[in-house]
Design a protein around this nucleic acid. Structure first.
Length: 275
DNA sequence: ATAGCTGTTATCTA
DNA sequence: TTAGATAACAGCTA
């Protein structure tokens, strides 16, 4: 489901609805959801109060008042819903957090790829998943000086490099296609062939794309919904993702879909040429 | 009906 | 380093 803008939208929804709430009960219906000891997870989370909700790249950080944080990754189709209605719970509801206001925070995940783990809040930077993340768009570390060396040391195609969360983080399959279209770079261009201007353009396009997508509440392509059950609007503004066989909005050439690094990849063969 | 696709990531092999 | 396969899982579509 989510790339960074979708996770950010979920974060904002959660802040509105669950910040300050005490978790009175936890039910884990799919133990593999939890990385680490499930019993300990339940024990430590139960009775704590949600202090705040943070985010690092595509990781949601649910900060508890007991010094621990739930690190939650939605992977492909993870979703949070807040509801007091029992019908909101179905066979894909894998974690249910009961709150002190009668509402339930329900984690749904059709494909069961998402994961949660408990970690010391003070030590998040040392968490294996968090520690290796590269700079993310809209952060102060997302600069040409930081990014250029991380990008051009790779000979792989640029699309794969941009999806590599250790190079830069937060971008996923949809927005990488959009960004490369915007800056007129072919997704299979070797990363070390890019000029300084290309890199600069990618940085700027990443920032504006993320900003726009967050403002639109993310993209709902197949299943994404925010914590209030709302769809995003950004899918209406996409230029190439899912637009194969339709005309490029810039030049009219038919958008094509190929596979790059195993991922479906959309681009304009006229605007975007390999360097 | 079956094969192939899907917004992610970790891990293993060559 | 990199490319590719595989795995986790379920549902949708051609």
């Amino acid at each position: 489901m989510p790339e960074m803008p979708e996770v950010e939208t979920v974060r904002r929804g959660l802040i509105e609805n669950v910040q300050g709430r005490k978790i009175t009960h936890v039910e884990i219906r799919y133990p593999n959801l939890i990385t680490g000891d499930v019993e300990q997870f339940i024990e430590f989370v139960t009775g704590s109060t949600i202090q705040g909700i943070g985010r690092r790249a595509k990781f949601l950080l649910i900060h508890l008042d007991n010094g621990y944080t739930i690190i939650s990754h939605l992977r492909m189709e993870g979703k949070y819903r807040i509801s007091a209605d029992p019908s909101a719970i179905d066979k894909h509801s894998h974690a249910i957090f009961s709150l002190d206001n009668g509402q339930k925070l329900i984690y749904n995940d059709v494909r069961k790829f998402g994961r949660m783990q408990l970690w010391n809040t003070d030590d998040l930077a040392n968490n294996k998943s968090i520690a290796k993340l590269g700079p993310e768009p809209l952060s102060k570390e997302f600069t040409f000086a930081n990014l250029k060396p991380r990008i051009v040391r790779h000979r792989k195609d640029i699309k794969t490099v941009l999806l590599d969360q250790t190079v830069m983080s937060g971008l996923g399959n949809i927005y990488v296609d959009e960004i490369l279209w915007k800056v007129k770079i072919h997704p299979e261009t070797p990363a070390d062939h890019l000029s300084d201007l290309d890199i600069q353009n990618i940085i700027e396009a990443s920032n504006t794309e993320m900003q726009n997508a967050i403002a639109a509440g993310g993209s709902t392509i197949r299943s994404y919904l925010d914590a209030n059950g709302h769809k995003g609007n950004m899918q209406n503004s996409l230029k190439v993702y899912g637009k194969e066989k339709t005309p490029c909005p810039r030049c009219g050439t038919e958008i094509v879909k190929i596979k790059v690094g195993g991922r479906g990849t959309h681009f304009c063969p006229h605007c975007q040429v390999v360097k």
